[in-house]
Amino acid sequence: MTDMLQKLKNAVRSRSIHVAYVDTGSCNGCDIEVLACLSPRYDLEQYGIYVHNNPREADILLVIGCCTPQWEDKLKGIWEKIPEPKAAIAIGNCPVSGCVFNREGSYVNPPASKHIPIAASVPGCPPRPTEIIRAVLSLAPTIFADYEEKRQ
């Protein structure tokens, strides 16, 4: 019975992925690409991905931007607000390396993996909507599969 329930949960979780995104000081390029995923050309919701701006109802956090010092504690707070099972994806070069902002004397603190655990990163400046969707679709089933069994 629990096995069946787990399988049902796996099936539902891989088809209904709720995503919240947080901009920790980017140039807005990656935000625009995340929004472009919602447009009719890519139509995010046909893959079962729903974008909210609320961490309380999210499964996946998209971290955008190069983590300015003001965001260090707030990013952690947002990550703690997401209910389990959860995962964070770094979108763009900024949370990976800081990219063009990570120069001598600049006021940023990348990578984002310093502050919260990052499960995957999508490099690009900005990454294409197809790459973002592909990352979410390939990550979510592997992270969320058999979550209750893994926790025991």
Partner: peptide, 12 residues
């Protein structure tokens, strides 16, 4: 010699 590109830094 070979050029190496580092994703995560490259902005394409």
């Amino acid at each position: 010699w070979t050029p190496h590109i580092y994703p995560g830094h490259c902005i394409r």
